[in-house]
Amino acid sequence: MTVTRVVERSADRDWADHAVQVIDADARRSADTHLLTVDLPGWAADAGIDLYLKDESTHPTGSLKHRLARSLFLYGLVNGWIGPQTTVIEASSGSTAVSEAYFAKLIGVPFIAVMVAGTSPRKTQLIEAQGGTCHFVDSPSEIYSVAQRLEAELGGHFIDQFTMAERATDWRGNNNIAESVFRQLELERHPIPAWIVVGAGTGGTSATFGRYIRYRRHPSRLCVVDVENSVFLPAYESGDGSLTSPTASRIEGIGRPRVEPSFVSQVIDRMVGVPDAGSVAAMRFLSEKLGRRVGGSTGTNLWGVCSVIADMVAAGQSGSVVTLLCDDGDRYDHTYFNDQWVAEQRLDLAPPTRAIEEFWATGVWAAP
């Protein structure tokens, strides 16, 4: 006689249910981020062009990465990868790790950020302030292997933003960033944007926008900006996903030395390469216009915005353009807003500043 076997693994279901509820409750307490209008010069008004900034700096952890961290934690919970005793591990020293430390603290699990020694004290302070632990390695090439080793040693979960970003986010809706933007534009004179301009770090944000506009059959076009030492643009141009770079990006939060699994190039309509000096010059220029500081990746976005708006003007096309204010510029006192750091990096901000000022005055884009 065959004995019926029953294997039970539902002991942590009640904890997981509670953890998801806690994260949902946190989201309910957080209002949606603002969609700001940017005052453009008279030539833009005459051309019927509007510019909007989705201000992601107002999230509880201060950046666009708050959305990604929430999605990654929910994805880990519903897949059963994160339990009440699970140590969550990430290979990141940036805003994603800050946001992930926040959600780990929220549901009561340990968090370790694997990062390169020499990462700015400001970053480690932000992670540790959320209850996270920083594990330092000597080389950027080590962060993934060390994260995987810690996962095995601790029985933890390597949350792996660069692989999971595009699959953890519900691109059909569920209040993702794309759905939020289109809902906020509904009463504007151009409710369907002509262009959406974003950067790529994990690739998750561009994948979400690209999939959403195709799913909703919107005519909007997606422009992705890329920075120096990143291989996203060369891979997009050549179709070679094996490209790598020996040098990391200087613009935090975007650009990668390898083509990440979450980078979905097929949903992108245009890519624009942005020099690092252009990113920093544009960041400083926009900060002055807004009367508040924005980060380097927002400057990269503005450089792409100048390009697409100039093309619209030349083609006689009216419409709206949307880009992201990714995080607050006060995080970059020691780098992008520090003239000594800029000089040490040998970045000449004069030519890109002139190009942006000329564009703002005339609508003509002559990028150096």
Rank of each mutant, 00 (worst) to 15 (best):
T362Y: 02
A45I: 03
E344P: 05
S95R: 03
G76R: 02
G329Y: 00
H18W: 14
V181Y: 01
G241C: 11
L77V: 12
A152C: 11
G278D: 10
I107S: 03
R292G: 04
L302F: 15
T86N: 00
T4Y: 02
G255Q: 00
N229M: 08
K54I: 08
A117D: 13
Y144G: 10
D311W: 03
S297M: 00
G108R: 02
Q345H: 13
V272Y: 09
R167D: 14
A366E: 14
T202P: 05
D269L: 10
F285H: 07
V78I: 10
T335A: 10
S206Q: 15
D240R: 08
D39Y: 02
A104P: 05
Y236L: 09
F263Q: 07
S287F: 12
F337L: 10
N338K: 12
A47N: 08
V313E: 02
Q85Y: 12
R5G: 07
G201I: 03
I251S: 03
V280L: 10
V7Y: 12
R149M: 04
I213K: 13
S238K: 13
V181T: 06
R70G: 10
T244K: 11
A314E: 11
S287W: 07
H59V: 06
D240A: 10
S245L: 12
D269S: 09
Q130I: 11
D240T: 14
E237K: 13
A97G: 11
A113T: 09
S220E: 08
L286S: 06
A47E: 05
I196K: 09
V6W: 00
S10W: 04
V227C: 11
G291I: 01
T202F: 01
H66D: 14
A91W: 05
V181W: 00
I159T: 06
A44F: 02
D327R: 04
R5L: 12
R28Y: 06
R67D: 09
T353P: 00
A16V: 15
A44G: 04
H34E: 15
E228A: 15
L349A: 07
P140L: 06
F158G: 05
R216A: 14
V321D: 03
P140R: 08
A168L: 02
G291F: 00
V225M: 01
D50L: 02
K105Q: 13
V308W: 01
W171K: 15
D269A: 07
A47F: 06
R167T: 15
T244N: 10
Q85M: 12
I196D: 09
A200K: 02
S279D: 08
A31F: 00
A47M: 04
M164Q: 14
D170S: 11
W365R: 06
L64R: 05
E151N: 13
E128L: 07
H18G: 11
Q161S: 09
E56Q: 00
L35G: 03
A194P: 01
L185C: 04
G42V: 07
G316L: 07
R214W: 14
R256D: 09
T244P: 04
A152M: 14
S71G: 08
W195K: 05
E100P: 02
T247Y: 05
R70L: 12
T61R: 04
I82P: 04
T202A: 05
D138V: 12
